[in-house]
Design a protein around this nucleic acid. Structure first.
Lengths: 143, 143
DNA sequence: CTTCGTGCAAAAAATTTGCATCCGT
DNA sequence: ACGGATGCAAATTTTTTGCACGAAG
């Protein structure tokens, strides 16, 4: 699930063409399932697969992938966005180390509990963000 | 709690001077407790109080206020940061309407539940973000 | 009077856009 | 062949920085 072929088909359904640049980007995202990548990282890793790839192409495609709900966009480090495949595994959230920036997945999700409490509110939830910041063992020792 | 005087004293403790620009910024933040403001909004509202205020001054002071834990910085809309007084009321999170951008406070916080489950992990939590996106009643009707 | 803060203008960093050309289908 | 996709360079947007001057304690 959420492998190359699945994503490529999904793009085709939406009328997008399969260019080499696009395939490279998808490959990179699939190979890093469950981890956030910055546009910068996606750019350089895509170039390794298909040298002729431009930064604007990366951004344009990331936007398409967000709009077709193939990837998720969030902001983990200050000032840049990070991207990750949707449902790459089960739905999960992240522990984010403020020292080294490493992220770790956690499968706890508070959203059902919340929905119980929210019940009556006239608000349709579509999306949520739950991110945990702190220091991993190594970074804490270094302090 | 978290009124002008409290904040000003806290800044003085840290050796910061009380300039008119700084007072204007603090006033703006206090008057909008419980709501996120962008740097842009803080800038223009501060100028209403004290005309001689510059954008770099805003950013420099917001950074100081973040470092002294007087305000919180997060990213609600794409591409810009939003700021809000810490503990302006009790600790809370937000419902954020993707239509009109309005935010609503909710007092549910999943962090204790999480800590139970996390227990054994070698990770020291310092901070967390829990943000809920969707559409408020009005924006949903408009669709 | 000393140190910290500010304004200004310019730089940086991240992302977006216009346009001519190229490539998938 | 057509329409979407790309590369390039330039523009935008948001935030940061250097430096000389001004104001707070």
């Amino acid at each position: 699930m959420m492998n190359r072929t699945f994503i490529e088909d999904k793009l085709k359904e939406h009328g997008y063409k399969l260019t080499n640049q696009r395939k490279a980007i998808i490959d990179v995202l699939v190979e890093h399932q469950g981890h956030f990548l910055s546009a910068e990282e996606i750019y350089s890793k895509s170039k390794d697969k298909y040298a002729q790839t431009n930064f604007s192409t990366i951004y344009r495609n990331l936007e398409i992938l967000v709009n077709t709900h193939i990837i998720h966009k969030t902001q983990i480090k200050d000032g840049t966005f990070s991207y990750e495949l949707v449902c790459s595994e089960a739905h999960h959230h992240h522990l984010i180390c403020k020292g080294c920036g490493k992220t770790e997945n956690i499968d706890f999700c508070p959203i059902e509990d919340l929905q119980k409490k929210l019940g009556s509110k006239n608000f349709t939830l579509t999306d949520h963000k739950f991110e945990l910041y702190g220091y991993c063992q190594k970074c804490q020792e270094d302090q």
